[in-house]
Computed example of a mutant assay.
Amino acid sequence: MLGVLAEYSSAGAGGAAAALLLCLALGWFGVLAVRLSLADIRTRRLPNVLILPSYPAAGLLLGGASLAAGEPERVGGLLVGSAALWGGFFALRLLNPAGLGFGDVKLAGLLGLYLGFLGAGHVFAGVVATFVAGGLWGAGLILSRRGTGRTAVPFGPFLFLGAAVAMLAPGLQ
């Protein structure tokens, strides 16, 4: 994501507008990451009041950035990324309702906008990073005897962590 931001920043007037929109989108990502992660840790819930309005906000900011930069193909990417993650996590929810909440499904779709903006490689990397981080946390709980394989773990923070790792990863397409 930083590479895209650097490209936009050095691309003249359209690039400056694109960079500003991308910075706003990233700022919103940061605010959401903190607020939703804390809410999930405290209550095991990801509030719709934060997630649902974030879909159009992130879509408009990221889509606007891509159009201002003359890269309309990114709009399709962010839509496909969102649909892919929402659909994939919805399928996981259907397979194991106790293991994944519907808030996680909605959050995955939202994060798919950000990752899809960058490309399919980032979408895949975000999912892998999410499950690796969550799995390591779960293994740590089991090994430290603070939990079992059935211990409920808030998954929202791991979704944000996985997305952030993928967004910062260079060279993915």
Rank of each mutant, 00 (worst) to 15 (best):
2 L>I: 13
7 E>Q: 15
10 S>L: 13
11 A>R: 13
11 A>I: 10
11 A>L: 11
12 G>A: 11
15 G>W: 07
15 G>C: 03
16 A>S: 06
17 A>E: 08
19 A>W: 01
20 L>H: 05
24 L>S: 04
25 A>N: 08
28 W>F: 14
30 G>W: 09
32 L>M: 12
34 V>E: 01
38 L>C: 09
45 R>C: 05
46 L>F: 04
51 I>E: 01
52 L>D: 07
53 P>E: 11
54 S>T: 03
54 S>N: 03
55 Y>A: 04
59 G>R: 00
64 G>R: 07
67 L>H: 02
71 E>R: 14
73 E>R: 15
76 G>Y: 11
79 L>M: 14
80 V>L: 15
81 G>D: 08
84 A>Y: 00
85 L>T: 00
85 L>C: 01
86 W>Y: 14
88 G>K: 00
89 F>P: 00
92 L>W: 10
97 P>E: 14
99 G>I: 06
102 F>L: 02
102 F>H: 00
103 G>D: 07
105 V>R: 02
107 L>Y: 02
107 L>Q: 00
108 A>Y: 00
111 L>A: 05
114 Y>V: 03
121 G>H: 12
122 H>Y: 07
124 F>I: 14
130 T>D: 11
130 T>Y: 10
135 G>R: 02
136 L>D: 06
136 L>T: 12
143 L>F: 12
145 R>K: 15
147 G>K: 11
148 T>D: 10
148 T>Y: 02
154 P>S: 12
155 F>D: 02
156 G>H: 01
159 L>V: 10
162 G>E: 01
163 A>K: 09
164 A>I: 13
166 A>T: 05
168 L>I: 10
168 L>S: 12
170 P>R: 13
171 G>Q: 13
173 Q>C: 06
